[in-house]
């Protein structure tokens, strides 16, 4: 029963998550905390921190919630429910998108999407920076990593390792 409830909830959230998973977090919190009473607000914050500390895409908030509710099976069911409906839609739309590559409406729409995407992605990063950086040192790490990754082709892993080491040594 629990697995069905998880599949239905995250399947619905999957198609609601316009603009990515992070913009859907408030809705996820409302459902699992206030509607289903699976988690307390504090537990939700803790699980969110865990999903952020692990590598991988931020759909993994559904993995940790599912695992909390119904063990490993719950985690896997919630993850699949979160990615499949949106993924099937993405495959279908991208196919139509490819087929009409030369059409005028397609080229106009593509050209129109680009600046909006650019603004959205920089704003998403900006919101992240505003929330994350509380001290001078973390802000310095962020600025250095931003500049290096913008201007060079250094592998991201070097910057992540460097940030973690600076944190260990200096904090």
């Amino acid at each position: 029963m629990m697995l069905t409830a998880l599949a239905l909830l995250f399947g619905k959230l999957s198609l609601l998550a316009v603009g990515g998973v992070n913009s859907t977090l408030p809705e996820i919190a409302r459902e699992v905390v206030s509607v289903h009473h699976w988690l307390t607000p504090a537990q939700f914050a803790q699980l969110f921190a865990i999903s952020n500390a692990a590598p991988g895409p931020n759909v993994m908030i559904s993995t940790v919630i599912g695992a909390h509710v119904d063990g490993v099976a719950g985690g896997i069911v919630a993850t699949l429910a979160m990615i499949l409906p949106a993924g099937v839609l993405a495959m279908a739309v991208s196919r139509v998108w490819e087929r009409y590559r030369e059409a005028r409406w397609r080229r106009v729409l593509q050209a129109a999407l680009l600046p909006v995407t650019a603004g959205l992605i920089v704003a998403a990063a900006g919101v992240l920076v505003r929330q994350a950086d509380t001290g001078v040192l973390t802000a310095a790490i962020t600025v250095v990593c931003a500049w290096v990754s913008w201007r060079t082709k250094v592998h991201p892993l070097w910057l992540l390792t460097g940030g973690a080491l600076v944190g260990l040594v200096v904090f």
Partner: peptide, 15 residues
Amino acid sequence: AGLAAAATGLMLGTA
């Protein structure tokens, strides 16, 4: 904390 700060910077740089 250091890892999170670096990850935020990477996100900004990639954006």
